[in-house]
Computed example of a mutant assay.
Amino acid sequence: MTIEENRNENDAAIRESIDRFAKALGAKDVDGCMAVFAPEIVSFDILPPLQAVGADAFVKHWHEFFESYQGPLDVEFPDVRVTADDNVAFSYCLHRIIGTLKNGHKTDFWLRWTAGWRKTNGKWLIVHEQVSVPVDLASGRALLDLKP
């Protein structure tokens, strides 16, 4: 296999994992979401704490997030960019989540999503995830109404 063919194969495998992750996220399937993350995952997400370290902390994070919503979520990872080598890769994109909170408030916001991947035993897993939103520094408030 050529270097280019190997990169294309790695790119395709990561995109397939992101597609599975998006479906699991939309279905509020914790196990499906966790299937793309390494056991030693470190996540810097928009929800507290400042960082979640390890699968156990991250599972708790997913349960809390999903429990705040009623019904399924609409999830998009459009225009994902992937850079992959033999065993390490990163991906990034704007990421959209639409849903209805348990209090009836409808949400529709875009996030910035970056993932660091490592290939172990032939499988790509996310070892680091960064999710963020812009902040208005004057007010200290997250800007959840921005659209691409």
Score class of each variant (00 low, 15 high):
1 M>I: 09
1 M>N: 00
1 M>Y: 03
1 M>Q: 02
3 I>N: 06
5 E>H: 09
5 E>K: 15
6 N>A: 10
6 N>S: 06
7 R>N: 02
7 R>I: 11
9 E>T: 14
10 N>I: 08
11 D>R: 15
11 D>E: 13
12 A>E: 08
13 A>E: 02
13 A>G: 04
13 A>D: 01
14 I>W: 11
14 I>H: 07
15 R>P: 05
15 R>M: 06
17 S>L: 08
18 I>T: 06
19 D>M: 13
19 D>A: 14
20 R>T: 10
23 K>R: 13
25 L>N: 00
25 L>G: 00
25 L>V: 11
26 G>Y: 11
26 G>N: 07
27 A>E: 07
27 A>I: 11
29 D>W: 10
29 D>E: 05
31 D>C: 10
31 D>N: 12
32 G>Y: 03
33 C>S: 05
33 C>V: 15
34 M>D: 00
37 F>E: 01
37 F>K: 03
38 A>Y: 05
38 A>S: 14
38 A>R: 09
39 P>S: 01
39 P>W: 02
40 E>N: 12
41 I>K: 02
43 S>A: 13
44 F>N: 05
45 D>K: 05
46 I>S: 00
46 I>L: 05
49 P>L: 08
49 P>M: 06
52 A>H: 11
53 V>D: 03
54 G>R: 04
55 A>D: 06
56 D>S: 10
56 D>C: 09
57 A>S: 13
62 W>T: 03
63 H>Q: 13
63 H>C: 07
64 E>M: 14
67 E>H: 12
67 E>R: 13
69 Y>H: 12
70 Q>R: 12
72 P>V: 05
72 P>N: 02
73 L>I: 14
73 L>D: 02
74 D>E: 08
74 D>F: 12
76 E>Q: 15
77 F>P: 04
77 F>K: 10
79 D>I: 10
79 D>S: 14
80 V>W: 04
80 V>M: 08
80 V>G: 00
80 V>A: 06
81 R>I: 14
82 V>H: 00
82 V>K: 00
82 V>E: 00
83 T>H: 10
84 A>C: 14
85 D>W: 13
86 D>H: 15
88 V>Y: 06
89 A>N: 02
89 A>Y: 13
90 F>G: 02
90 F>H: 07
93 C>I: 12
93 C>S: 09
94 L>H: 14
95 H>G: 01
97 I>G: 02
99 G>P: 12
99 G>E: 00
101 L>Y: 15
102 K>C: 09
103 N>C: 10
103 N>A: 05
104 G>K: 11
104 G>Q: 10
107 T>D: 00
109 F>A: 03
110 W>K: 05
111 L>M: 09
112 R>W: 02
113 W>T: 10
114 T>D: 00
115 A>C: 13
116 G>L: 13
116 G>P: 08
118 R>M: 05
119 K>W: 01
120 T>H: 08
120 T>C: 07
123 K>V: 15
126 I>W: 00
128 H>F: 03
128 H>G: 05
128 H>V: 11
128 H>A: 08
129 E>L: 11
129 E>D: 03
129 E>C: 07
131 V>Q: 04
132 S>T: 11
132 S>V: 10
134 P>C: 01
135 V>W: 04
138 A>Q: 09
138 A>D: 06
140 G>Y: 01
140 G>V: 11
140 G>C: 06
142 A>E: 04
142 A>T: 12
144 L>T: 13
145 D>S: 11
148 P>C: 04
